[in-house]
């Protein structure tokens, strides 16, 4: 447990989460993993047993007189909070080295919650107010402190896939642009710009539907050391134009509402 003003961090292991969710009768958890392991029922059961032992060791559950378990209300609240949310905000940030950071953000009344998986650890951070959460999202985007205005606009198809592809394999990215009908001059301009980007991020509003989910709104950003571009969805492409930090902050505030 760590605490700073208006912010409280609490970690649970994935195995602990599995046991808690199973005991509460929760059939699925919206975890911000890049991949979900294909676990057999036996493997899941083993994980849950390990989680149970760990929760007991940490003093987060105790045997209840008679039958069942007493559970500390903080982990109980966290598990119920994320599992009962009808929607969440998913923040993804990908950098040129291929590192992907994914967070799930939840709100309940005035409070906010972020959930990030760090290997086998689910890192919950509870925010006293939505403002605290909004500030944390802004920090999570790691935006440059000073930005330079630019008038250029660039169109990309599926930017969260295209940019990492361009960073890794420019010739493949060029073929993708060509297949999308861009002439070679426009394609070269778009590709040069794409390769110069150092990160891309997207904040997506996700409606939770059982084990699957659907994006209902998305706000994409990309940038390098001096400039930030905000993406506007025009149907076939996303058009990226200069955006300032105040506008980004305002948009995030809107999406948290």
């Amino acid at each position: 447990m760590k605490e700073q003003a208006g912010v409280f961090q609490f970690d649970l292991s994935r195995a602990e989460l599995f046991w808690l969710a199973g005991a509460f009768g929760i059939s699925s958890l919206p975890l911000p993993d890049a991949t979900i392991e294909r676990l057999t029922h036996d493997q899941l059961e083993q994980r849950q047993k390990a989680g149970h032992a760990s929760l007991l060791t940490r003093g987060l559950i105790r045997s209840s007189p008679g039958f069942g378990w007493q559970i500390e209300r903080l982990p109980a609240a966290l598990v119920q909070w994320i599992s009962s949310a009808p929607s969440l905000l998913r923040l993804e940030r990908i950098t040129t080295d291929g590192a992907v950071r994914s967070l799930h953000l939840f709100t309940s009344d005035a409070q906010g919650l972020s959930l990030e998986m760090d290997g086998e650890i689910a890192r919950f951070i509870i925010y006293q107010t939505r403002r605290h959460l909004q500030d944390a999202i802004m920090r999570g985007l790691s935006l440059p402190s000073k930005t330079k205005k630019t008038a250029s606009v660039h169109k990309l198809p599926q930017p969260l896939v295209f940019l990492p592809t361009a960073w890794k394999d420019a010739s493949l990215a060029a073929r993708i642009l060509k297949e999308h009908g861009l002439d070679s001059k426009s394609a070269k301009s778009a590709l040069d710009w794409a390769v110069s980007m150092e990160w891309i991020a997207a904040l997506s509003k996700v409606r939770i539907e059982g084990t699957g989910n659907a994006i209902t709104e998305q706000f994409a950003l990309c940038g390098e050391g001096k400039s930030i571009w905000g993406g506007k969805d025009d149907g076939q492409y996303m058009s990226f134009a200069h955006i300032g930090t105040m506008a980004i902050n305002s948009k995030i505030g809107d999406m948290l509402e």
């Binding site: 849950q48 149970h52 209840s64 069942g68 378990w69 659907a214």
Partner: peptide, 14 residues
Amino acid sequence: AFLNQTILPVFTAL
């Protein structure tokens, strides 16, 4: 956007 982690039920009282 992602798929939720499926959980096995644990039969106990909390």
